[in-house]
Design a protein around this nucleic acid. Structure first.
Length: 596
RNA sequence: GGCCUCGUAGUUCAAUGGAUAGAAUAGGAGUUUCCUAAACUCUAGAUCUAGGUUCGAUUCCUAGCGAGGCUACCA
């Protein structure tokens, strides 16, 4: 039951009756009433004064009086300047709760039934995942869950960058300095081991350049003729020719990396329905270049390279095929877009990629539009901001990159220490306790990265991220655990969990009313989160709900309430809050514990 | 140089063009014979600058200052 829509319909009627003006309910804008005034919903009359031809106070008064008489859900109203504040009667709140209890918000979503592909994570196989990847992974996973929950059919996919000169660098370094080291015999996780040789390449390469410069070679030339670089380039050529020796090493090292990635993915709880590999897609897109040339959308320069001119669209000229006929990133992405559409027939395709590639995606989508692709309007770049450290930007060369595995380990350790200090789970088995630490650690980390608007760059302060108080995941998890204790006790008292235990004649306590109103908002926020691809809306909702519950929890007593019906009602109010928190947090990929 | 983002309490984040700009943390003061104090209550503290549009601007427009990104026949 949606109180907003009842109100909007009533407003629409009021305008018709009072001012003979037709306005569809959907065009009525309501906003939450400020704390300092009485009421829950506020209507602003200023934009309608031209129509009503009356002063703000008078207009608001007429509307308020009409609504109070006709809507049946308003107990009183007050007018402050041009603001009409509406007080919903408790009967309506109770009816709303009764309805929501039996049909929670996530069951009320009208299915959009769209096929949506969400591409995220998309790692390189030359180094382990870091903090920036975590934001990407959590965002992609969460957006997928939100889209599913709002009735869409979602495919989560990832496109692994498993080829190219950077991979060859790791291979060359390993071949030269590896001494047969493997994840098994070194105890190093596969992705970290390969990353180690990627770094080693850079170090040794720099040494070679320095030596050549000392011998009198200009720096630029030295960079080009250093043997390691030549070797890496040779590997790239041999890889493209499918040289068995190179392919074997490539397969082996990538295998190590995938084992490492899979372990990390499992720990952080993300997954994919399908994995694309660039080694399989990099060849795609050349036929599209030919098609574009044929259609006259692209053009060939005298050196043979192929370009598209988007300067009329406010963009630049962009290369699509090198003069030697090899493809570039854009070529592949054109081909992959077609491939995805062929395979899934998506209505929408979302790319979770950092905002440093905004320009690339503007160009990509523009080209596909010019080519007349039927799916072009369904493409969306979910562009997220970078994660900065207090010391500034993460730079691998300066060793300031925060490694994903290390970070998770540290968070688990923090969870262990904080939990031990409180001593609330001393009766837990070792295994249960370890599980809880992980749940709390990931809850804190995911919440920290997801509570911020994806579009914005964010600051990651390690000190703050491990906070378990205030606007954090564990705060919400704690609220859930508290409610769980209530519900366990309710079960012992044989309070029927299938019933909302509502008596429509009751007057509500302020905190009960606030809680019901917040629960009633979930549907709207889910929709808004889905429309904007913004998990932060869900994150902030969960926080708001938990905060409201905690106030309710301290201000009214549940089991000390003398009126049994009222007691049972408070239990069911707690129950729906718990269910809503669990659902909302699951959309963020966060697990909530029964005890903590 | 050109193009694109972003400047909000000490700090990290909110605010479909609406009321006295909300939270959280850090600071100060309190709450536990009572369902989990990882909680709750009170307190103090902010819209980069200058113009403009509007009944009304953190939000829209222009200029300036500051931060970041993009601007490769790299991905």
């Amino acid at each position: 039951m949606n109180i907003d829509s009842i109100l909007k319909t009533s407003f629409s009627k009021a305008f018709k009756e009072l001012f003979d003006y037709k306005i569809p309910p959907a065009d009525i804008k309501l906003q939450p009433t400020n704390r300092e005034f009485e009421g829950s919903h506020t209507f602003i009359v200023f934009p309608f004064l031209k129509i009503t031809k009356k002063r703000p106070e008078e207009t608001a008064g007429l509307l308020g009086s009409f609504l109070k008489k006709s809507s049946g859900i308003i107990s009183s109203y007050n007018v402050v300047k041009g603001f009409l504040n509406l007080v919903i009667n408790d009967r309506t709140w109770l009816e709303s709760f009764e309805f929501d209890y039996n049909t929670p918000a996530w069951e009320q979503v009208t299915a959009n039934k769209q096929k949506i592909m969400v591409e995220y994570s998309s790692p390189n196989t030359n180094k382990p995942l870091h903090l920036g990847h975590l934001r990407n992974n959590f965002l992609g996973y969460s957006v997928s869950e939100i889209l599913k929950a709002t009735g869409n059919n979602v495919d989560k996919v990832t496109l692994v960058n498993d080829r190219g000169i950077h991979i060859c660098k790791s291979m060359v370094a390993y071949r030269n300095f590896g001494n047969g080291e493997t994840p098994d015999n070194s105890g190093i996780k596969g992705d970290h081991l390969v990353g180690k040789y990627y770094v080693r390449f850079d170090q040794e390469y720099k040494k070679q350049i320095e030596e050549l410069v000392l011998e009198g070679m200009p720096k630029e030339e030295a960079a080009k003729s250093a043997s390691l670089m030549l070797e890496a380039q040779d590997y790239l050529v041999r890889w493209e020719k499918k040289d068995p020796e190179v392919i074997e090493l490539w397969t082996k090292m990538n295998g190590w990396v995938y084992d490492g990635f899979n372990s990390t993915y499992q720990t952080i709880g993300v997954d994919f329905d399908k994995t694309y590999y660039e080694s399989e897609t990099y060849i795609l897109g050349r036929d599209i270049v030919a098609e574009g040339l044929e259609k006259g959308i692209f053009y060939r320069k005298t050196d043979g390279s192929v370009w598209v001119d988007l300067s009329d669209e406010g963009l630049d000229e962009k290369l699509l095929l090198r003069s030697d006929g090899t493809s570039v990133y854009m070529t592949q992405d054109l081909g992959t877009a077609d491939l995805k559409y062929r395979e899934s027939g998506f209505d929408q395709s979302v790319y979770v990629v950092g905002n440093e590639q905004n320009y690339h995606f503007d160009v990509l989508f523009m080209i596909l539009r010019k080519l007349g692709r039927p799916y072009a309007d369904g493409l969306h770049h979910l562009s997220y901001g970078m994660v900065d450290l207090p010391s500034g930007k993460m730079k691998s060369r300066e060793g300031t990159v925060v490694d994903a595995d290390d970070l998770v380990d540290e968070m688990v350790e923090t969870a262990r220490i904080k939990t031990a200090e409180l001593g609330k789970i001393d009766d837990f088995l070792e295994k249960e306790a370890e599980h809880l630490y992980k749940v709390l650690a990931l809850g804190a980390l995911k919440y920290f990265l997801l509570k911020i608007d994806p579009k914005k760059r964010m600051m990651f302060n390690p000190e703050e991220s491990i906070q378990f108080q205030g606007h954090t995941g564990p705060f919400i998890q704690y609220t859930y655990a508290r409610i769980s204790a209530i519900l366990r006790k309710a079960l012992e008292l044989n309070i029927d969990p299938d019933q909302p235990h509502v008596n429509l004649e009751w007057d509500l306590h302020e905190t009960e009313r606030d809680l019901i109103a917040t629960l009633n908002e979930y549907n709207n926020d889910m929709t808004e989160a889905a429309e904007n691809f913004a998990p932060s809306i869900i994150a902030n909702y969960c926080f708001e709900l938990a905060k409201n519950y905690n106030r309710f929890y301290t201000e009214v007593s549940i089991f000390k309430e003398n009126n049994i019906d009222r007691r049972n009602f408070r239990v069911s109010l707690s129950g729906l809050t718990a269910r809503t928190i669990r659902h909302g947090m699951s959309l963020l990929g966060i697990v909530v514990p029964e005890r903590m």
